[in-house]
Amino acid sequence: DNLVIALHSYEPSHDGDLGFEKGEQLRILEQSGEWWKAQSLTTGQEGFIPFNFVAKA
Protein backbone atom coordinates (compact mmCIF):
# COMPACT_ATOMS: atom_id res chain seq x y z
CA ASP A 1 0.00 0.00 0.00
CA ASN A 2 1.10 3.60 -0.45
CA LEU A 3 1.60 4.30 3.25
CA VAL A 4 4.14 6.78 4.57
CA ILE A 5 5.02 8.10 8.01
CA ALA A 6 5.67 11.75 8.81
CA LEU A 7 9.28 12.51 9.74
CA HIS A 8 8.39 16.08 10.75
CA SER A 9 5.23 17.98 11.61
CA TYR A 10 3.86 20.22 8.86
CA GLU A 11 1.67 23.31 9.19
CA PRO A 12 -0.28 24.00 5.99
CA SER A 13 0.71 27.28 4.31
CA HIS A 14 -1.63 27.19 1.28
CA ASP A 15 -5.24 26.22 0.65
CA GLY A 16 -5.31 22.54 -0.24
CA ASP A 17 -2.30 21.63 1.90
CA LEU A 18 -2.66 18.88 4.48
CA GLY A 19 -1.20 19.52 7.92
CA PHE A 20 0.10 16.60 9.96
CA GLU A 21 2.06 15.71 13.07
CA LYS A 22 5.40 13.91 13.29
CA GLY A 23 4.76 10.16 13.40
CA GLU A 24 1.36 10.39 11.69
CA GLN A 25 0.62 7.81 8.98
CA LEU A 26 -0.62 8.98 5.61
CA ARG A 27 -1.80 7.23 2.45
CA ILE A 28 -0.34 8.65 -0.77
CA LEU A 29 -3.04 9.16 -3.41
CA GLU A 30 -0.94 10.83 -6.12
CA GLN A 31 2.79 11.43 -6.54
CA SER A 32 3.66 14.41 -8.71
CA GLY A 33 6.78 16.51 -8.31
CA GLU A 34 7.59 17.77 -4.82
CA TRP A 35 3.97 17.92 -3.59
CA TRP A 36 2.08 14.67 -3.15
CA LYS A 37 -1.66 14.30 -2.59
CA ALA A 38 -2.22 12.34 0.60
CA GLN A 39 -4.90 11.29 3.06
CA SER A 40 -4.30 11.27 6.80
CA LEU A 41 -5.13 7.93 8.42
CA THR A 42 -5.69 9.85 11.67
CA THR A 43 -8.17 12.52 10.50
CA GLY A 44 -9.28 11.20 7.09
CA GLN A 45 -8.55 14.61 5.56
CA GLU A 46 -6.92 14.91 2.13
CA GLY A 47 -4.52 17.48 0.77
CA PHE A 48 -1.06 18.13 -0.57
CA ILE A 49 2.08 17.41 1.45
CA PRO A 50 5.79 18.11 0.86
CA PHE A 51 7.25 14.74 -0.18
CA ASN A 52 10.48 15.25 1.78
CA PHE A 53 8.60 15.36 5.10
CA VAL A 54 7.60 11.68 4.86
CA ALA A 55 9.19 8.24 4.44
CA LYS A 56 7.80 4.86 3.40
CA ALA A 57 6.10 3.21 6.37
Score class of each variant (00 low, 15 high):
residue 19 G to F: 06
residue 15 D to Y: 12
residue 40 S to P: 00
residue 52 N to G: 10
residue 8 H to F: 15
residue 11 E to K: 14
residue 42 T to K: 14
residue 26 L to M: 08
residue 57 A to F: 14
residue 1 D to Q: 10
residue 57 A to G: 11
residue 50 P to T: 07
residue 55 A to E: 13
residue 52 N to V: 06
residue 16 G to V: 06
residue 27 R to L: 14
residue 16 G to D: 09
residue 46 E to D: 06
residue 1 D to W: 13
residue 16 G to I: 06
residue 1 D to G: 11
residue 43 T to A: 01
residue 41 L to P: 04
residue 25 Q to K: 12
residue 49 I to M: 01
residue 9 S to M: 06
residue 57 A to I: 15
residue 56 K to L: 14
residue 1 D to Y: 12
residue 44 G to F: 08
residue 4 V to R: 03
residue 44 G to Q: 07
residue 50 P to V: 05
residue 24 E to M: 02
residue 2 N to A: 08
residue 17 D to S: 10
residue 14 H to E: 08
residue 16 G to L: 09
residue 22 K to A: 10
residue 48 F to H: 06
residue 8 H to S: 09
residue 9 S to C: 08
residue 54 V to A: 02
residue 55 A to S: 11
residue 7 L to Q: 06
residue 55 A to D: 10
residue 33 G to D: 05
residue 47 G to Q: 00
residue 47 G to C: 06
residue 35 W to R: 14
residue 37 K to G: 01
residue 48 F to Q: 06
residue 18 L to D: 02
residue 6 A to R: 01
residue 22 K to H: 05
residue 18 L to M: 07
residue 44 G to K: 07
residue 34 E to G: 09
residue 30 E to H: 08
residue 24 E to S: 03
residue 39 Q to D: 01
residue 32 S to P: 03
residue 25 Q to W: 15
residue 52 N to Y: 12
residue 42 T to F: 09
residue 41 L to V: 10
residue 52 N to M: 09
residue 27 R to F: 10
residue 5 I to M: 06
residue 56 K to I: 14
residue 7 L to W: 06
residue 52 N to A: 10
residue 18 L to C: 05
residue 33 G to R: 03
residue 22 K to Q: 10
residue 45 Q to Y: 09
residue 42 T to E: 11
residue 40 S to V: 03
residue 26 L to E: 04
residue 12 P to T: 06
residue 5 I to V: 10
residue 13 S to R: 15
residue 21 E to R: 14
residue 54 V to Y: 03
residue 56 K to A: 14
residue 47 G to S: 01
residue 26 L to C: 08
residue 24 E to D: 11
residue 40 S to K: 14
residue 19 G to M: 07
residue 6 A to V: 07
residue 37 K to F: 15
residue 54 V to F: 07
residue 5 I to R: 04
residue 22 K to D: 03
residue 56 K to Q: 13
residue 31 Q to E: 12
residue 6 A to W: 02
residue 31 Q to V: 08
residue 31 Q to H: 10
residue 20 F to G: 00
residue 20 F to H: 00
residue 13 S to W: 10
residue 53 F to S: 10
residue 14 H to K: 15
residue 27 R to Y: 11
residue 34 E to W: 12
residue 38 A to R: 02
residue 10 Y to I: 04
residue 11 E to N: 12
residue 56 K to E: 11
residue 46 E to H: 08
residue 3 L to H: 05
residue 26 L to A: 00
residue 17 D to L: 13
residue 29 L to T: 06
residue 4 V to N: 01
residue 19 G to L: 05
residue 24 E to R: 00
residue 21 E to S: 13
residue 41 L to E: 05
